[in-house]
């Protein structure tokens, strides 16, 4: 497996903070959150949103914030003022369990496929679609693992389209046994 991708592009996690924001699942709530970031000059690095309970009363928005664009307390303080925001958890990278999903369509001639399939298997990714001259693969995992996989694909196969979901996160459990 290649070295974890650490550097130069938008995927660097170093200055980022994860906010897990529980909101009322009401019309316009995403616009309220996104609009707040924009008008206060806070930068969103990634954002994922989906219902958080079976009754769809609440949604959870996982926002990766560029912590250099504004003091985190200011971001949290302003977010908290939104009436539809119920709870904000600031997850430091050590306390967060993070996952992300990636889809990549790689254009690769039939005869060169084996090498790609090997790499896909090594990374724990799987093939979800296939045609004569392209393969679509998926990988879910930690952002770090996805960074590495993305770098490998992008470097080895310039003819590719990659889409990531942005990360979702929850706090680690006490006495957590997870390693990722």
């Amino acid at each position: 497996m290649p070295e974890p991708f650490s550097g130069t592009t938008t995927h660097s996690p170093i200055t980022h903070h994860i906010l897990s924001v529980l909101v009322e699942n009401k019309a316009g709530v995403l616009a309220r959150v996104a609009g707040l970031f924009s008008r206060r000059s806070f930068n969103i690095f990634s954002l994922a949103v989906a219902p958080a309970d079976a009754h769809e009363r609440f949604s959870r928005i996982t926002i990766v914030v560029d912590a250099e664009s504004a003091p985190l307390e200011q971001v949290v303080g302003q977010l908290n003022k939104l009436i539809n925001v119920v709870e904000i958890r600031d997850l430091g990278s050590n306390e967060a369990l993070e996952r992300e999903l990636l889809l990549a369509t790689v254009h690769v001639p039939h005869q060169e496929r084996d090498h790609l399939l090997e790499s896909v298997a090594d990374a724990g990714a799987s093939v979800v679609d296939i045609s004569d001259d392209a393969i679509t693969v998926t990988l879910s995992g930690t952002p770090t693992a996805l960074n590495a996989f993305e770098a490998m694909v992008a470097q080895g196969y310039p003819q590719c389209e990659i889409q990531r979901t942005g990360r979702v996160a929850l706090p680690r459990l006490n006495n957590s046994a997870t390693t990722a």
Partner: peptide, 14 residues
């Protein structure tokens, strides 16, 4: 108008 006033109200409703 709810979109226009989102940033200048405490809250708005439709």
């Amino acid at each position: 108008i709810t979109g226009i006033t989102m940033g200048i109200t405490k809250h708005n409703w439709l």
